[in-house]
Design a protein around this nucleic acid. Structure first.
Lengths: 262, 262
DNA sequence: TTCTGTGAAACCATTCACAGCC
DNA sequence: GGCTGTGAATGGTTTCACAGAA
């Protein structure tokens, strides 16, 4: 999957910490740090990609109108989103592309490196491991784990696959901050517990299971079945009462243990 | 019981909105059909999986407290969600598992078959094609497409890979209602246009690109980079001002060329 | 008594519309 | 004139708290 662009850059060690705001006469970049709404955070990542494309195309400045169109939102929303991270535009002109990129990277914490560990090198996990986007976007994949003896010891993209029992030890050693779970759903909770015990505070979960975690840990879920079912809802609603397509064969009753592609 | 509320997730907003809602129909189940909020739809899919597990375990009835804990939400939210699809519980007792499953499937449109076409059989696409979850959950994958001559003509999981030029023709023929895009991002918009022209009304997009579609088409996006960046934001926020872990090495400079992992 | 169903309140997010700067 | 930044209005979602059925 993925992609490209923007590159993080960055640089300036912005003076001091981040996290909190300190205003006062500062270095060059002012970090207003207020409270960025969750919904806005998700869109900032999208703006960042679009800005990367613009920068690559040689764009210098961009208006909220153009940027929002490229990002698939309306301009008022974009302006409001950007206002949460400080006033970065020039009235009558627009936003300076490179400055905005730096600002968003700063807010998203992309000026820091985040080591990523992936557990479950099956069907999907293998595809993710082969995906170049991790490293290219500042998220170096630094460890792979599985239980399959056939896999343990092999290398994918130059990274050795270790046995899952080593998760805790390895994550601590490598300073992993983000864990990715791509195991069958039955194993997900156990793996999650190990990651949490190893100090991982953020988890991206591809297994179709609800993970129970302490509240300091942030979990995001990517669930193919859920996405398809949401689309199904809209198909049913849109085509209204008609049976547009074909048949209406019922699905199996209770679905159960779904297994991540592995 | 009790469990913590994990914190997570949330669906991606995605473009188009809707318009109306109405349905008529009257098979056996009573379909109250009011207006089911978008956020609720996403959770119904989760409840459905949990209910499947319960049914498999022989559960007969379940309380909102237990079901909500297993689904990772609080009980008031669960009850409100279920109230949107009709009153299906018994006060003082709980919900009848099998009845609730039927009811949710009904609302999500899962009593109808949805043929799925997948475009882009690269790294990720291949993994998705090999994933059994499609068919097992009522979404038979019925067509695969790619441009690579090495792939066209081969079979994956018994399904022939066709050339992408045939998308329109094949989708119409097979009655495809859901299209999945797993191509490099540069190709995504063109593929999307072809799917839309073929009458596909719902698209699941794994390519990191913003698709422009007519508003009758529903698009949902799954973007690994965006997910990681959101997690990055939380890592930065949580660990606050501290430099907790390690380094803060900046990432590479401006990147460009986009290439999906394929 | 237990547990659902639901108004009402609180909260968050989006959109509007315009003041203010270029 | 063009375009950003933002209060105010609107709309959607979550939480509260309790009436009422079993």
């Amino acid at each position: 999957m993925t992609v490209h662009p923007p590159g993080p850059t960055d640089g300036a060690p912005t003076g001091a910490t981040d996290g909190t705001a300190q205003l006062v006469g500062a270095p060059r970049a002012r970090v207003p740090e207020a409270r960025v709404p969750e919904a806005t955070v998700a869109r900032l990542a999208v703006y960042l990609r679009v800005l990367g494309d613009l920068a690559a195309a040689g764009g210098d400045t961009v208006s909220s109108e153009d940027l929002s169109a490229a990002a698939g939102v309306n301009s008022a929303k974009l302006r409001k989103d950007l206002s949460y991270i400080g006033s970065n535009g020039t009235r009558g002109v627009g936003y300076e592309v490179s400055r905005l990129i730096r600002q968003i990277e700063q807010v998203l914490g992309l000026t820091q490196r985040h080591a990523v560990a992936l557990v479950g090198v099956g069907n999907l996990g293998h595809a993710l491991a082969g995906y170049g986007g991790f490293a290219g976007r500042g998220f170096p994949l630094c460890a792979l784990f599985d239980t399959d003896p056939e896999l343990v010891g092999t290398r994918i993209n130059g990274i050795e696959v270790r046995h899952v029992d080593r998760v805790g030890e390895a994550c601590r050693q490598l300073g992993v901050t983000i864990g990715v779970i791509a195991t069958p759903s039955v194993a997900a909770q156990a793996v999650c517990d190990q990651l949490v015990a190893a100090g991982v505070r953020s988890i991206l979960n591809f297994a179709p299971a609800v993970l129970q975690v302490p509240e300091r840990v942030e979990v995001r879920k990517v669930d193919l079945a859920v996405e398809l079912q949401i689309l199904s809802f809209h198909v049913a609603r849109r085509h209204g009462g008609n049976g547009s397509g074909v048949n209406g064969s019922a699905v199996s009753g209770a679905a159960l243990g779904a297994v991540v592609g592995q």
